[in-house]
């Protein structure tokens, strides 16, 4: 057997798994959206005409963007502190970020049901302090979905950015300082540009993750705060409108792929090291 043949034989099982169980099924989902008798793009016209569907799309984009922005800010500051911490504290902090990350989405979303619920800790505290006379309805709002989503993605951002910040050699900031740069200037002109590709990668992970999430909007948003993921599920399994569900799926795929492609090009271009 030639090396080329051997290479293909070894790759074949994994390729087959992806092609047969991902490629074909997803393509067939996308294909059904063009099969409408009223014309190939009828489903998409209907999607973008429908107030309900557009509201779901905008809400999902809004939640995903807010989640990304907040996670980026919170994650960057925290990762900065973690990367500067003494070794023993640093490993403790990393454990504290990894633990929630490895705990399932369902468990972490459920925590916010307990916190924000009618008898939850927030309402109990406010009632006891006599700040409110009746429990607030915080669940099944865009706020409850967004806060749980931020909770879900901050650890991912922290860990991604700690890796990025650790990769920036201390020598560079030292060099900047020895050439007379104040800490703020060294940060702005040396650290930040080098961190930009990592910031973009982290943002893409959080944006696509929150844009396509299912469990969190299902638990904390319910029927009232439908997002693309829950909307797809509802169309597919409750109303059995498979073509409608496929159209939602297609919109999700396009948004995700376009984001990933544009942002990874941007990350490459802005990478000061690769030049």
């Amino acid at each position: 057997m030639s090396p080329r043949q051997r290479a293909w034989v070894l790759s074949a099982p994994a390729l087959l798994l992806v092609i047969v169980f991902l490629g074909l099924p997803v393509l067939s989902t996308l294909a059904t959206t063009f099969g409408d008798p009223k014309g190939p793009f009828h489903q998409y016209a209907a999607f973008f005409d429908s107030k309900l569907r557009m509201r779901v799309l905008w809400r999902t984009l809004e939640v995903a963007l807010v989640t990304t922005a907040v996670s980026l800010f919170v994650g960057f500051v925290t990762a900065w502190v973690v990367s500067k911490a003494p070794a023993r504290i640093k490993s403790l902090l990393i454990i504290a970020a990894v633990f929630p990350l490895l705990t399932g989405v369902v468990v972490r979303s459920f925590a916010w049901l307990v916190i924000l619920g009618k008898n939850g800790i927030v309402n109990e505290t406010l009632l006891r302090l006599h700040l409110i006379s009746e429990p607030l309805n915080m669940l099944y709002t865009q706020f409850s979905v967004t806060i749980a989503m931020i909770y879900l993605f901050v650890p991912l951002m922290i860990l991604t950015l700690v890796g990025v910040l650790e990769g920036i050699p201390q020598d560079l900031t030292d060099a900047a300082a020895s050439l007379g740069a104040k800490p703020a200037a060294a940060f702005r002109q040396v650290v930040l540009p080098m961190a930009v590709p990592g910031l973009i990668v982290g943002s893409v992970l959080v944006f696509t993750g929150s844009f396509t999430s299912y469990a969190t909007p299902q638990l904390l948003g319910g029927e009232r705060q439908m997002m693309m993921g829950t909307f797809l599920y509802q169309r597919a399994m409750v109303t059995f409108d498979w073509v409608g569900a496929s159209t939602i799926a297609a919109v999700m795929v396009v948004v995700t792929l376009v984001t990933v492609l544009i942002m990874s090009k941007l990350a490459q271009r802005l990478n000061p090291v690769a030049g």
Binding site: P25, T212, Y233, T256
Partner: peptide
């Protein structure tokens, strides 16, 4: 190709697998 399962939204993958 091997990272497609992460790239394609999981909920889309689930729905497509269910149908096929």
């Amino acid at each position: 190709i091997y990272v497609l399962p992460i790239l394609i939204p999981e909920i889309v993958l689930g729905f497509s697998l269910m149908k096929s």
